[in-house]
Design a protein around this nucleic acid. Sequence first.
DNA 1: GCTTGTCGTGTTATCATACAACCCTGATTT
DNA 2: AAATCAGGGTTGTATGATAACACGACAAGC
Lengths: 261, 261
Amino acid sequence: MTLKLDKVNRGPHLSTLVASSISREIAQGRLKPGDQLPTEQALATTFGVSRNVVREAIARLRSEGRIWSQQGRGAFVADATNATVLTIDYETLQRADSFRNLFELRGMLEVQIAALAATRRSDADIAAMEQALDGMRTAPYGSVAWLKNDLGFHRAVAEATQNPYMGQFLVFVSERVRESILAAGNQQKSDDMARTTLGEHERILAAIKAGDVKGASAAMTRHLAGAASRVGLPGGEASAKPASPARHSRLRKAMRGQAAG
Amino acid sequence: MTLKLDKVNRGPHLSTLVASSISREIAQGRLKPGDQLPTEQALATTFGVSRNVVREAIARLRSEGRIWSQQGRGAFVADATNATVLTIDYETLQRADSFRNLFELRGMLEVQIAALAATRRSDADIAAMEQALDGMRTAPYGSVAWLKNDLGFHRAVAEATQNPYMGQFLVFVSERVRESILAAGNQQKSDDMARTTLGEHERILAAIKAGDVKGASAAMTRHLAGAASRVGLPGGEASAKPASPARHSRLRKAMRGQAAG
DNA sequence: GCTTGTCGTGTTATCATACAACCCTGATTT
DNA sequence: AAATCAGGGTTGTATGATAACACGACAAGC
């Protein structure tokens, strides 16, 4: 497990290995923005693969905005801000602080989205939320169907903002959070949890239905606090509300260590 | 005259065209999750390109989590939630409502981030913000250096939350907003704007420095409202520019026979 | 001196072909 | 009937070749 990757470890495709190898060179600063990559032929020989595989890796990195290439000149490392895609790789997801940070981001989005949804929801949006809630009622807690409807509810809330990017971002973050939970693997189920969770959702729906902005965000905040405790996070800090101000120095130190990874 | 070359020629690669074509088929529902894609050979002949090009496109879509493939079987459309990357394609960016929606999302993030930053900022974070502000003071309004420091300020605020994902998401959204502004192409500069914008930033910094949560979010809200009016958002909207006439090259011929886009 | 045109070299973009690894199906064998 | 094996189809990889393009060197012309 200490071995990072040299030959056959992760991706079943050689192009994946080549791509992550180059990607790591960039992330760790051995290839700086503006630097020219070795030629495809050179990369092919150094990696011991065909030029075709190298090209697939390059195509992938180019689509991610990490590099750009021009015919006749070569391939160059792009500026970090030019990344056209937002991606969170699987490895960092498995870290405990990543989980907490992602959850915090999700909470920030959810609370604001709930407030916005309360002002813009349509009848169709309400119907979608109710349908998702029904799906949760009939499915066992924690089952695939339950999770699907849970996500569906939150997506319906996001779509009630009439802003498609809200749902897009929220689903993306939520899926990362879910993967992170699965990676941690510490979830215990009980009928009690099912009832509590359902009740939280119902309160959110009621507030949105009533057009109660403050009530919607408050209900969502409570739901997130409950969800946090259910997955073993220290509670109510999920919202954007300030928590204990005394702890930020210790927290900062922890974050500095992470930034190096 | 200052020559602007920001408009990069988006993907003159055949693999890019093939990838977005397949991607569109998925997005518009003609290819549903679980469906099997045509074979690489079939795609190559229908697109009129070599199988190599198709493979680069497939590699790209696979890295985005849109499809998955298995040797000996074929390639299949993945579930939408399995997407490992969040991407906003260039075409939708040019629509006026996309701009407005993105701006709204950015504002939601910024305001919450500012509030959180006011509770968690460190001395180093403050220093980074001040440095960015200095950079804005010495650069002409709207110049590359000015924009760089503007983004740097907001990134510094995001990093003051001690949550790396905040900066990651905010920068991503902000860059899309900026591209969207460039696509619209209607920005007028004045020294007045420079002073106003700087003042708004200074108030944000002061509130964060003082640990004033409500003040920080209020100052950020004001800044965003000002920025919105400066890019002509509230009453008038960013004009939707018609697509520039595509240069006629051999490449486009490969796209014929493809569903109308 | 300076510009302009041409050419050669190196690199990427694309094409074409071949083989290996693998999956699936169905006939053959046990 | 069950296990085995052969065959075709598909993706994964390798290899070689050609076209398009960039860039510097060099010579020709002013």
